[in-house]
Amino acid sequence: MRRHPTGKTLGRLLVGGYIVIYLIFVLFPILWLLLGSLKSRYESLLMPPRIIFEPTFLAYEKLLFGGLLHTFGNSITIALINVLLALVFGVPAAYALSRMRGSVRKNVSFWILSIRMAPAFGVVLPIFVFMRSLNLLDTITAVIIAHLTINLPLAIWLLLGYFDELPQDIEDAALIDGANHLQVLWRVLLPVSRPMLIAVALLVFVFSWNEFLFAFILTSSEAQTVPALIASLAGTMNFDWPLMSAISVSALLPAFLVVFFAQRHITEGLTLGAVR
């Protein structure tokens, strides 16, 4: 059975066209941010924009030498530790839940999910009080803990859905062969779960990186994160859009590289046979 050759070409064209259009939609604002970061405050919002302009690196200079870089350090630290914790706690929990049945699984997993449903404005006050009682205000620990309430449910649910789909017979075979659950998880499940693990790690990183309210309320200047810095710059009568753009753009290049290398692990062709 061969597919109709013209149909295939048409399909490819449609797919290609769709991707190109979507890429334009995605990249247009980013390109605009990039150009904005190289302009003066006036010119950055000028319409129609000047295509040819004399770039200024003032915004980047401010970012590099104005004592703002520590916000990047804080954000990256908080996000990376969140990735680590979300996986360390989330993977075994998701595994356990996926091998459980009945009301316990249902109730526990739903309770975990419900944690993420809490609107930030509703719980920020109690979390503030809680962190204060633990003497954690102004520390990145406080933000890491608060972000876990967003990220752990995400990690557990994504992995739970994933583990559910993996056939259980290989696992059972391994167990009967004398492996314990930890070994099964480590040697059998994790290798085939690489695409989802990478996706979870990326998403946890992103949610932590972008989160504003907890990061702002629970910290002070020392532990300020990137979104908090951007917001506080937005609030000035200067409205330093080039600086805001520069900060966002600066985060994108390293992110692009990380995502580029990470996504290689989200590849097809993983066969269950391979892990046997």
Binding site: I19, Y22, L23, V26, L27, P29, I30, L33, L202, L203, V206, W209, N210, F212, V226, P227, I230, A231, A234, M244, S245, I247, S248, A251, L252, A255, F256, V259, F260, Q263, R264, I266
Partner: peptide, 17 residues
């Protein structure tokens, strides 16, 4: 790979921006 990475980029732009 490049296209995938590009499509993921907006996630890393803080919602304020």
């Amino acid at each position: 790979g490049v296209v995938r990475a590009l499509i993921i980029l907006p996630l890393l732009v803080p919602p304020v921006v």
